[in-house]
Design a protein around this nucleic acid. Sequence first.
RNA 1: GGAACGGUGGCAGAGCGGACAAAUGCAGCCGCCUUGAAAGCGGCCGGCCCACAAGGCCCGGGGGUUCGAAUCCCUCCCGUUCCGCCA
Length: 437
Amino acid sequence: MIDVRLLRSDLDAVRASLARRGDADLDSLVDTMISLDAKLREITAERDAVRAKVNELSKQVGMLRRDGDAAGAEALQAESRALGETENTLAADHDTMSAKLREVLLVVPNLPHPDSPDGTSDADNPVISGPFLPAGGIDGFAEHQRVPHWEIGTDLGILDSERATKIAASMFTMQRGAGATLARALCQYALDANADAFEEVRPPTLVSTATLTSTGQLPKFADDAYAIERDDLWCIPTAEVPLTSMYAGEVLAQADLPARFMAYSPCYRREAGSAGRDTRGMLRAHEFDKVEILALATPDQAAELLTEMVGRVERLISSLGLHHRVIEICTGDMGQSHHRSFDVEVYAPGCEQWLEVSSVSWFSDYQARRADIRYRPLDADGKPVKGTALVHTLNGSALAVPRVWAAILETNRQPDGTIAVPKVLHPYMRGITVIGG
RNA sequence: GGAACGGUGGCAGAGCGGACAAAUGCAGCCGCCUUGAAAGCGGCCGGCCCACAAGGCCCGGGGGUUCGAAUCCCUCCCGUUCCGCCA
């Protein structure tokens, strides 16, 4: 969530910044926050004053008892008891008000970075790298590449959507044989490619409500997540969720930042809002595998890390021989928690579309405030500064399997209908260099 | 799932109804001493709200008893050990 104090110190800037997202409802939410915050502070001051009086009286009671003045003590106790009731009322009001304010704060999106491009939809996202396409552009692909992966996969016996649906439900997928090996190889490769700088983690894939709230999925997007109600747990939609919360409630040393983590995990998404979209093949599934990279950083380190992480993802995709481009997400298309965001897209010649295969984002302190992840800042001489500060979080998919898998099938389809496995994956394929044939 | 014992500041660890934000040790910061460092000595040293004041809040979370709770009661969560069950 955003810092309420910004509403008091720099209201106009907050309004202007949120306005760039193009959501007309936000302005009235800001008004609500301001009035709740004002009331909350008023009640807090009142409650504190009453508490101070009760504390003072209680001290005196203790002293009078020690001195043997029972009657005097009784009198003060009665006075304090009466004040206690006032305090209870004020405390209850305070808690109600505070809960209301938090409710609003949890649904207000992050402020976009000044350099994030303005825009109202994905049509306004500028291409900042590429597109890297064959000669002739998207018309430059050969005829044998223009077959959608669901046909290729089914024909080669490496994709069995029909049985996946029978076992689970629609929009679940299943890879078989060399297809399953290819999926696992992609994960393995993505982990190895980032192992130079990121600690590998194997996190829980079921998490608590508090954890799913910290990263921004709850309360607003509860319908998009699978819930295990009996045990009050949720299936993670991405490893970002457990990785971000690893240090929730903790205070890190500045020397430990940036802290970098990567994780392979299955990801679960109900896709509640996407019924009927991309229902074929591997473009959209309820369960898929992904390797995530994530960093906790100081505010000063964040911008550079973002660039580094986008670069890593782009190089990884490029090394697989896929035709790609990098776009920056405009203010009107950014996710709720995002401060600045980039997508890497791959062109799939068979289904004839650009596929988002990675999204790398900087969340400023938005998630860290929800999760309460802080560090002890040092000054320029390396001496501790008083107090603590929130870290900045960044994360991105190093590699999301299904769409990359699909793009490889389509891009690497040979005239004879077989699939050439990208060279960088050979070490992970048990000797398979060509699928089919 | 059952039983026992625990959960206190960056860490370790006292306190178990009244001046406790909390002893002590370690770590950290400042200074003295020293050519420098270590040792030693002196001082400082948790976080949060709020305007850096006053004041308030925080001893796993929540609730209760009381004039007053780190301390008593209830409840939940977590940890350790033992039992049960098991990949």
